[in-house]
């Protein structure tokens, strides 16, 4: 067992966990943050993506010990109060989700993509950058649309700040 302490969605949380505990298990089983999902066993599907110190990583391929002391943001921590994050709003407005299972990981990856590329995104880049996130419902058409839409919204929001 290992004692760990990290910041999740702005709150300091600590726990005593088995060393083999993955970050996704800690989030789901210990913190009841069930928005982060598990869709595969081989680090391919991206349903589990969260941000660790501002970088989008696969929480199913991270021991919670590795992020001891880090700051983690999950899908539950992305929006401010009732107002959706521009990426969440863009997914809703562009029908970028169907069953919703891949959506949290998809949104967390998409936010990271926009943060890295800013307004320079085009369709081919978005499709390539989504390589680590699998969706079985949407055929990606509207996910790509959502990310491009959000990229515009996020750069506008940034410019306004």
């Amino acid at each position: 067992m290992t004692a760990i302490s990290l910041t999740v969605n702005g709150k300091v949380v600590s726990g005593n966990v088995e060393d083999r505990t993955l970050l996704v298990q800690f989030l789901r089983d210990h913190l009841n943050l069930t928005g982060t999902h598990v869709g595969c066993d081989t680090s391919q599907c991206g349903a589990c993506v969260v941000h660790v110190d501002g970088r989008a990583v696969k929480s199913c391929t991270t021991l919670v010990g590795q992020v001891d002391g880090a700051s983690v943001t999950t899908i539950e921590g992305l929006s401010h109060g009732d107002e959706l994050h521009p990426m969440q709003a863009a997914f809703r407005d562009n029908h970028g989700l169907q069953c919703g299972y891949c959506t949290p990981g998809m949104i967390m990856s998409a936010v990271d993509i926009v943060q890295r590329h800013g307004g320079k995104l085009d369709e081919a880049t978005v499709r390539h950058e989504l390589e680590g996130n699998i969706c079985r419902c949407t055929g990606y058409h509207n996910i790509v649309k959502s990310v491009l839409d959000a990229a515009g919204r996020m750069s506008t929001a940034q410019a306004a700040e």
Binding site: G46, V57, T61, T62, D112, I113, E129, G132
Partner: peptide, 9 residues
């Protein structure tokens, strides 16, 4: 290598 999330780690 891999995908963006893999490349971060």
């Amino acid at each position: 290598i891999g995908d963006p999330a893999v490349r971060y780690r």
